[in-house]
Amino acid sequence: MKVLIIEDEKTMAFEMEASLKKAFYLCDLAHSFKIGLEKLKLNQYDFILIDLSLPDGDGLDLLKEAKKHNAEAAYIIITARTNLKDRITGLDLGADDYLPKPFYLLELQSRMQAIARRKFNIAEDLLSIGNFQVDIKRRQIKYELEEINLSRKEFDLLSYLLLHKNRVLTRVQLSEHIWGTFVNDDYDSNYIDAHIKNIRKKLNCHANTDWLETVRGVGYRVKQ
């Protein structure tokens, strides 16, 4: 999959590129409105990530232009601007998602996967782990044919770990995924552990869950 990253903060663009490359995306970078537009005219991309505050133009205008040349691409707006108006305008202009800075790179990837699933119908909806089957779209988890009842947060957590299997996810990454940017006062809470404990308890009734590992001091990982 081809991704164009239009971001004027070079370090940030490089880090995004590094992380996406590991997930086997092909990346192209543009550090300004002008270069971004040139690349858009020349190439076709699957994903276009646009920073709203570019030094030589507004990302929202670029989004409008980009749609003419890359109508099929999925657009994700990335911005430090958090006002609701921008967000609504962005989505109205046809952006597929909106990520406020700062975000976790894993969050970006999971949003891209979600879009891929929704828009391109390419990512798998049905995952299996151990003896369990997980349907991401229907938000169901089954052991053989029996459905297991997980809470909304528990399912979010488990599917996030599954989608990034074999990677260690930290508690902060996980908590930001399930809580979003909702502001709460706790920066060192162990509620992720509580959720994991519940998930294990519910799944262990059916089969063992050794695949859901605790990485001491770091976080959790689904190993397959």
Partner: peptide, 26 residues
């Protein structure tokens, strides 16, 4: 927000390195 983003991404990428020692990860 932007500098925080950069730091966060760097740390995230660093953490994903395979040859990381446990103490570095912590």
């Amino acid at each position: 927000m932007t500098p925080i983003s950069i730091l966060q991404h760097k740390m995230e990428n660093l953490l994903a390195e395979e040859d990381l020692t446990e103490s570095a990860a912590l």
